[in-house]
Simulated scan of single mutants.
Amino acid sequence: MTDEVAPEPELGLRERKKRATRRRISDIATGLFTMRGFDNVTIADVARAADVSVNTVFNYFGTKEDLFFDRQDELVEGVAGELRRRRPGESVVALFRRRFIESLDENAYPTGFHEGSEIWAKTVMDSAALMAKQEEFGRSSRRRLAEALAEETGADPDDITPRVVAAMVHAAQWELVGDIVGRKMAGQTLHEMRDTVYANAHRVFDLLERGIGDYAVKPPDTGARDAASGK
């Protein structure tokens, strides 16, 4: 029997409208934050620019920082989903290597390998509140990955291994992204840094592979194997 991930239910019109409103408010807020600086923009400024009430903004976002990091909760929770959906025979290191390289190919924003990442990074670094929030999300991401690894491997509650592996994987990706953003802030173009960025990613994951490469390998897909053999 194979592990199957149930497709997400299709969203109704009301939910789609709510998500669109949330994204629009966040996009407008992010534009204001990057232009003026996070600490120089109020919730009232965001509400006025988005043509909604202050209460409406708070209906969608608990804090001002959440307006800027509007997809972080989704990314944190997505870590567990990525692990569950890894390919048969794929270790946790192989999974995150593959996903990081794919994200570079797509110029996905979590990697920093996209136009404007230096503007985003400067906005964060110029605000103590955003720096603190970013650190909080980092801790949440490590903790969620450790929990998912413990669930996948059946680790005992006092087993430190899932926490160590999660910390190593998170640290590797954090340093890779930091290097990319640092290069952007120094004036390099995506084209100029491309070869180095990919080489660094493979080098870092090679290091992880040699240390924890056989940890959390998903069992073979016995259902597919039995079907192929006619059992």
Rank of each mutant, 00 (worst) to 15 (best):
Y60T: 05
A201F: 00
S127F: 01
L95W: 01
A228I: 05
M125G: 10
G182R: 00
I212L: 05
E4R: 14
K231H: 14
G12Q: 02
A199F: 12
M35K: 15
N40D: 15
E4S: 14
T161Y: 03
F58N: 10
G230V: 05
G211M: 09
P110T: 06
M193T: 15
T34V: 11
P88A: 09
F33M: 07
N40F: 13
E77I: 14
L145V: 06
P220A: 11
P162A: 03
V52G: 00
A228L: 14
F38E: 00
I101L: 13
S26E: 03
W174D: 15
E10K: 11
K133L: 06
Q188K: 11
S141I: 07
A224L: 13
V79K: 03
I160T: 04
H170R: 10
S140P: 04
P219S: 02
K18C: 08
W174Y: 07
D206M: 08
L13W: 14
K218S: 14
A172M: 09
G223Q: 02
S127G: 01
R22S: 08
E65I: 02
T42I: 00
E136T: 09
G223M: 03
R225T: 15
G62L: 01
D159S: 07
R183P: 07
L13D: 11
L207G: 15
M35G: 06
E209Y: 10
K17R: 13
R143I: 07
Q173Y: 02
D159H: 06
Y198G: 04
R84Q: 12
A94D: 13
G81I: 09
T222R: 10
I180H: 00
K17C: 10
P220N: 08
A146N: 04
V181L: 01
V93D: 02
F38V: 05
G81R: 13
S140Q: 15
G187K: 05
R98D: 09
D159P: 05
A6Q: 06
R85S: 14
